[in-house]
Design a binder for these strands. Structure first.
Lengths: 340, 340
DNA sequence: CTGTTAGCGCCTTCAT
DNA sequence: ATGAAGGCGCTAACAG
């Protein structure tokens, strides 16, 4: 660990050239004669020299660093998106600094400050602060302030009236896929469980749910839709509530996300005589580990990550892109599915 | 976004003081008169000034940045550890740069280079390259080279003969907890499924498993222990193999980790007439989302994160700490457990 | 308490 | 193709 730092000065001296030349061979894209290039390169290798990225950024203003802030990296949905963002970033030569805000506004703010101070070239926001249907003013101000200093891209969320970029999955379309599938399976009594009113993605799903039922001439029964946390427990509670409140229950139940879907499946095991179809949302790893495996709406994860990075790089402003999801059908809605 | 960068020079000019003074009020821990401090602070606020962390680090050599490299952040075990590391780091004023190597040595190497160039004060390794029981020489050389440039801490893994620091869970103790528990539940026929021979953590578990069986005077039957991938599929395959190879099967099955445990549970549903007890390892979120919920060995996650950061800060060398795990008993081994 | 002045390590014109 | 030199923004002696 006590390796005296070697700098381009040392290399230059040793090679008998100027620091500028060394810098050029490191950058690679400058005219340097074959001979000197090789000599310098050799010395670089010999010292196992690593350029100081900080000094470089200080000088040329390109940190090649982007920040990614999310409330819970342990949540499979968030981590799957993160991984795709990271991949795309790597391809373009960026590093990603992950900030896990733990749903705490202070930590979130702290990460943002940190990223700004690290000269991040952009910040990507996923979940958390960007998902309120009616964000409080203070929050918006905060975001606008950030935007003055760095590029801001939101994934699956956006805030009214601040010309930022965002990339999202068309969750309304996802809901339509679900209803179509269930109807095609013969279901006419469908319920929707979970989510928090006022959170954009939930609001979209609920309103689309209602509209689709109407379109298919199915009735929307108020007690067949209830809110709850975005968690396994939320799903269990929602299911219990549904069962206790109704004498007539749905034959198919949609969870606002996979966790809720899995929670419902767990809770339903107490009613071995009744059969339900279950659907989730996000198609996270959870949807594959549950049994039965959970039919779910899949985000175009890879595309989401790619576009987020592209938007970061582009200097277009206020661009909102929406991507189509797909439905991944599994055992929870179709019994006879063969595992591959 | 086009906010002309304001520097301490601007602030100094505006406040009619020197840059040193501005720097002092920012640092906070230097003597500055009440009056000037307030004046400067006011100007800082007014400009919504953020110091350039790179310039600072370049000057004072403290990046307050640490790197964390893991092969798959989508794996709940790794992400749970990461979160705890991050928390502890935050508390001590560090930021954590996450590198997700996707089990690819090149990406891993690239992250390491990146972190070195970003002047990370330390690198924490979890999983991946540090888990071979017999690491190839090249790899060790690599690690040693890194160690010359920055502090290296390994979590749940270590490499022979390079005086680094490591912090691990005592997985042998974990295996003992499992066997004790199963024996107490009356099991005398126990199997162990999953893992890859040559990976340290697996080797430890397998050899302890054998030793414990002997201690309890239970026989170790070769066909009741098999290797497989660390995945749901691995668990399913292992279980199928077990069922097809034996006429007499164990009553209790241990998975090398939770994924394997859950995979076995899934596969076992094809044998509704036979009852098995299942145990997993790591007590990740998977162990709670499965049904039945999976009894599992829990790592002291928080402590693991805390110690890792402490080790990073300390300049002690070659310290290996081992922490005791605990057994979290759930439905998969004790039917009558009441959910809390 | 506060100002002056070197760096920190690298990049980038501008000459040569 | 290569060298000289200023500058990026901040900190840390060293004076005063």
């Amino acid at each position: 660990m006590e390796h005296k730092k070697v700098t381009i000065y040392d290399l230059a001296r040793e090679a008998g050239v100027s620091t500028a030349t060394v810098s050029r061979v490191i950058a690679g894209n400058y005219p340097v004669s074959q001979g000197t290039r090789e000599k310098v390169q050799q010395i670089i290798d010999h010292y196992n020299y690593h350029p100081n990225a900080l000094a470089r950024t200080l000088s040329n203003k390109k940190s090649k660093l982007i920040g990614f802030i999310t409330p819970a990296i342990t949540n499979p949905f968030f981590s799957q998106v993160f991984v795709e963002v990271e991949k795309s970033a790597l391809e373009k030569g960026y590093s990603v600094l992950l900030g896990n805000s733990l749903n705490d506004r202070e930590i979130e703010a702290r990460y943002i400050r940190m990223l700004l101070e690290q000269q991040a070239e952009g910040i990507i926001l996923l979940g958390g602060l960007i998902n309120d249907s009616n964000p409080d003013l203070e929050r918006v101000q905060e975001l606008i302030a950030i935007q003055k200093r760095t590029k801001l891209v939101m994934i699956n969320g956006s805030v009214e009236g601040m010309g930022n970029c965002s990339i999202s999955t068309d969750e309304a379309a996802g809901m339509r896929l679900i209803i179509d599938h269930l109807v095609r399976q013969g279901h006419r009594k469908i319920g929707l469980i979970g989510g928090v009113k006022g959170i954009t993605t939930t609001d979209i799903k609920v309103s689309t749910f209602k509209a689709e039922l109407k379109k298919h001439q199915l009735i929307f029964r108020k007690s067949w839709q209830c809110y709850s946390e975005y968690s396994i427990e939320g799903g269990e509670d929602g299911f219990k509530q549904l069962m206790s409140l109704n004498k007539e229950v749905p034959t198919a139940l949609i969870g606002i996300n996979d966790m809720v879907g899995v929670g419902m499946i767990k809770a339903s095991k107490r009613y071995p005589n009744q059969h339900f179809a279950f659907v989730g949302f996000d198609d996270t790893s959870l949807a594959q580990t549950s049994s039965p495996e959970l039919t779910s709406v899949r985000h175009p994860y890879e595309e989401l990550g790619k576009r987020a990075i592209e938007m970061m790089e582009a200097n277009a402003k206020a661009q909102h892109v929406m991507l189509a999801p797909s439905l991944v059908v599994k055992e929870s809605t179709v019994k006879s599915i063969n595992r591959v």
